[in-house]
Simulated scan of single mutants.
Amino acid sequence: MRALLVVNPKATTTSGRTRDVLIHALRSDLKLDVAETEYRGHARDLARQAAVEDGVDLVVALGGDGTVNEVVNGLLSNGPSDRLPRLAVVPGGSTNVFARALGLPNDPVEATGALLDAVEHGRERAIGLGKAMTEGLPDRWFTFTAGLGFDAGVVGRVEEQRRSGRRSTHTLYVNQALRHYITEREHRRKGPIHLEINGREPVPGLVMAIVSNTSPWTFLGNRPVVPSPLASFDTDLDVFGITRMTAFGTARTVRQILCSHSPANGSAKPVGPHGKHVVSYHDVRHFTLVSQEPAPFQVDGDHLGDRSRVSFTGVRRALRVIV
C-alpha cells in the first residue's frame, strides 16, 4: 500500500525523535512518502495533490486537529468519491478530538501501532462530515465541530495567545473563556445569532451556536465536553445553542456538558444539556446561522474570522478512514 505521511513539524506533543520512530515504523509496512508542512494550508495542498495522483492509497495526518482538518479539506477539494485515498490519523496535537472520537489512542506511538494493525486487517469505516458554506468564500469541511459566536471568540483569543508565544494548554483555554465571558457582557444578555432550519420557526437571540459532527465536542484533559451527546459520524449534524449566559445558568450548563450523559441502567438515550436558555437539535442535514453583526467563526478549533451568515450541511459517508 502506497501512503503519504503529512507531518506537522510544529505538532505540540511530538518531538523530532518521536516522529523519526513513527516514520520508521510506518515504513516497515507501507510504501511511504513523507512531506513536512511549511506554511498554513500546506497540508491541504499536499492532500489535494495526493487525491488526484494515481497510486496513492492512504494519506496519514501526523499532527493536531488543525492538520487533520487541512488534510480532509485537501482530499475533498473536488467532493467525496470512492476513488479517494483513505485517511488515517496519528495524533500529535494538544487535544486530538477527531482521533479520540474515532477511538484511537491519544499517544502517537500507540496510535501508530493501532494504524498498522488496522491496515494489516483491512479495518476501515465510512464517516460523515460537516460542510460550512459562506457566500464568496471557499467551503470548509469539518470533522467534529464548527461554531459561531461565543465559543469561536474564545478560540480566537487562544490563537492570539499562541501567536504571542503561549503554549496551547487546557488551562489557557479555560482562562481565555473566563476573560471572554467577562468582556462580552452585552452579547451574553441578548445574542445576535438566528438559527434557520427549513420547515421550522427561526430561533433568534443565540449567544453562540455549536455545530457537532460527533461527540465529544472537545476535551479538557481527559474529560469529554459533550454539548450534543447524540452527535455521531453516522448521522447528520447536531446544533447546540444558548440564548442567554447568566452566571448561574452558564455554570449549570457547563456542569451538564461535563457530566456523564449515559443513564445508569443504559435503557434510555443519552440526555444532553437542557434549560430555559438552551436550544438543541439532533441529526439535521441543512440549516443556516445568521448573525445581525459579524460574529467569530471557528471550524475544528481553527478561528476563521468573523461571519454574518454561514450555511451548514451534513454529508454522510463523505470519507473512508482507517481505524
Rank of each mutant, 00 (worst) to 15 (best):
L5G: 01
A11E: 15
A11G: 13
T14W: 04
T14P: 03
T14G: 07
S15Y: 14
R17Y: 09
T18C: 03
R19Q: 15
D20C: 10
V21M: 12
R27H: 04
D29V: 14
L30Q: 10
L30R: 03
L32F: 02
A35D: 02
T37I: 06
R40Q: 15
H42T: 02
D45Q: 13
Q49Y: 05
A50I: 08
A50P: 05
V52P: 01
D57P: 00
V59I: 14
A61E: 05
D65K: 05
G66Y: 01
E70Q: 09
N73R: 09
L76F: 00
S81E: 10
R83Y: 07
P85Q: 10
L87S: 07
V89W: 02
P91Y: 14
P91F: 11
G92I: 06
S94M: 07
T95H: 10
N96L: 00
F98C: 07
A99L: 11
A99I: 07
L104V: 06
N106P: 01
P108H: 15
V109I: 14
E120K: 12
E120W: 06
E120C: 04
E120Q: 12
E120I: 00
E124Q: 10
A126V: 05
I127C: 08
W141L: 09
F142A: 04
F142T: 01
A146D: 13
G147A: 15
L148D: 03
F150C: 07
V154I: 14
E159I: 02
E160L: 05
R162V: 13
S164C: 08
G165T: 03
L172H: 05
L172F: 00
Y173P: 02
Y173A: 09
V174T: 07
Q176N: 12
L178H: 06
L178V: 14
Y181H: 04
T183W: 00
E184Y: 11
E184Q: 15
R185F: 00
H187Y: 03
R188V: 11
R188P: 05
R188Q: 11
R188D: 15
L195E: 13
E196I: 12
G199Y: 15
G199A: 14
E201T: 13
G205R: 10
M208P: 10
I210P: 01
T214M: 08
S215M: 09
S215L: 12
S215K: 11
F219I: 01
L220E: 10
P224E: 08
V225Q: 09
S232E: 05
D236S: 07
F240C: 13
I242D: 04
I242Y: 06
R244A: 13
T246H: 12
V254R: 00
Q256G: 09
L258F: 10
H261Q: 13
H261C: 09
S262R: 10
A264H: 10
N265I: 00
P273Q: 04
H277I: 01
V278E: 03
Y281S: 00
H282N: 14
H282F: 13
H282I: 04
D283I: 02
H286P: 01
F287W: 03
F287E: 06
L289I: 08
S291I: 09
Q292A: 06
Q292C: 05
A295L: 11
V299T: 12
G301I: 03
G301D: 12
D302W: 00
H303F: 15
G305P: 06
S308P: 01
S311E: 05
S311Q: 08
T313Y: 01
R316Q: 12
R316D: 02
R317G: 07
R317Q: 14
L319M: 11
V323L: 15
V323Y: 01
